[in-house]
């Protein structure tokens, strides 16, 4: 679990060409969602909070911003987890899309409230990409978990 989170953290800061950069999904958030759904007792909200804090430090934004967003959405994912597990891939992806949009919205709100808003539309692309790669990521993670 910690390994997958670290890997996702690395993916989150890995250099990409600027053209592709806006399309980078929030890997770390997706991994947190996976663990919230798969076994909420293993990491739980503490994992979500720690992951968010790591993002805050690395991105250099106000401390607690990502922590708040990830915690709230991970709690929601945990709440939905029994239903999510029996959903079809499409419904799962749609739910993940909603969660990621909520995540971006919290970030958007905190950005605005702390006085440095990011108003480009490209930030709303990340939830779409995230929802699209969710089946792949969740599949890969559950393979690794089975080992």
């Amino acid at each position: 679990m910690a390994l997958s989170a670290l890997g996702a953290l690395a993916l989150a800061v890995m250099p990409l060409p600027t053209a592709v950069d806006a399309f980078r999904p929030d890997f770390l958030v997706l991994v947190v969602f996976y663990w919230s759904i798969e076994s909420p007792r293993a990491g739980g909200l503490a994992l979500a909070f720690a992951a968010g804090l790591a993002l805050d430090v690395i991105r250099g934004v106000v401390l607690g911003e990502h922590a708040l967003a990830v915690t709230l959405m991970a709690a929601w994912a945990t709440h939905l987890r029994l239903r999510l597990r029996v959903f079809s891939v499409l419904s799962q992806s749609l739910t993940i899309f909603a969660l990621l949009t909520g995540y971006q919205f919290v970030l958007f709100w905190v950005d605005g409230a702390t006085g440095n808003p990011v108003t480009t539309f490209s930030r709303w692309l990340a939830p779409i990409i995230g929802a699209l790669i969710w089946p792949l990521l969740a599949g890969a993670l559950s393979r690794l978990h089975d080992r």
Partner: peptide, 28 residues
């Protein structure tokens, strides 16, 4: 369907709401 193999199927995670509020307040 993505295979979740978890056996942790108890209906409730105890005090999810409470912990959520706690961590959110901490973050805020």
């Amino acid at each position: 369907m993505v295979a979740f193999r978890s056996t942790d199927t108890s209906g409730r995670t105890t005090g999810l709401l409470l912990r959520c509020i706690l961590y959110s307040l901490l973050a805020l």
